[in-house]
């Protein structure tokens, strides 16, 4: 073995190998693996935090979208209610206007009827007055005046009565 060139010695090579394998095992299990595990764990922690933040962001965006939808729905509902109430107001206004018109027509109609009744009453009163006057005039003529005067008085009385009647009509 010792006759190999460069003083190569297999015993020493194996001792070197044993030494290095022990060192490898120690460094791997005591240093490399724990540090690597810690680094991976920390990376995982930060990745989880990142994922969580992304999820939170996504959830908040979804909520925002929901709120926006609700808000737009509420706005639509409000505008719908506004238009409905406007329509109701219009309807109510029309109804009230119609009622007022009807009332006005009724009042006018009643007034007209009352006026007609009053006219009728005045006319009848005038007729009865005329007839009384005619009767009176006839009696007076028959008792005091001549036939010619009586006839003139009669005509005057008739004209007066007609004139009164036309005034009442107006």
């Amino acid at each position: 073995m010792s006759n190999l060139p460069l003083n190569i010695n297999f015993t020493q090579i194996f001792l070197h190998l044993l030494n290095f394998l022990i060192l490898f095992a120690i460094l791997y299990f005591l240093l490399y693996k724990p540090v690597k595990n810690f680094m991976e764990k920390r990376e995982k922690t930060y990745r989880d935090m990142d994922d969580e933040a992304r999820d939170n962001l996504k959830a908040s965006e979804e909520k925002k979208a929901q709120y926006d939808t609700k808000l737009s729905e509420a706005e639509a509902e409000i505008s719908q209610m506004k238009s409905k109430s406007r329509q109701e107001i219009e309807k109510s206004k029309e109804t009230q206007l119609q009622a007022a018109k009807d009332e006005a027509e009724r009042i006018v109609r009643e007034a007209k009827a009352e006026a007609n009744r009053e006219k009728e009453r005045i006319l009848s009163d005038a007729q009865s007055e005329i007839s009384e006057m005619v009767t009176d005039a006839t009696e007076k003529l028959a008792l005091k005046a001549t036939a010619g005067e009586a006839f003139d008085q009669f005509l005057d009385a008739v004209d007066l009565a007609e004139k009164r009647g036309s005034d009442y009509e107006q």
Binding site: T11, Q12, L15, H16, N19, F20, L23, I26, L30, L31
Partner: peptide, 25 residues
């Protein structure tokens, strides 16, 4: 066993690194 000083240095390095690794761990 008669060993080369290089191998002795190897043992010493392993010893030093082992102690350091244990302390760090």
């Amino acid at each position: 066993i008669e060993i080369n000083p290089g191998l002795a240095a190897g043992f010493l390095v392993t010893a030093i690194l082992t102690v350091a690794a244990i302390i760090i761990r």
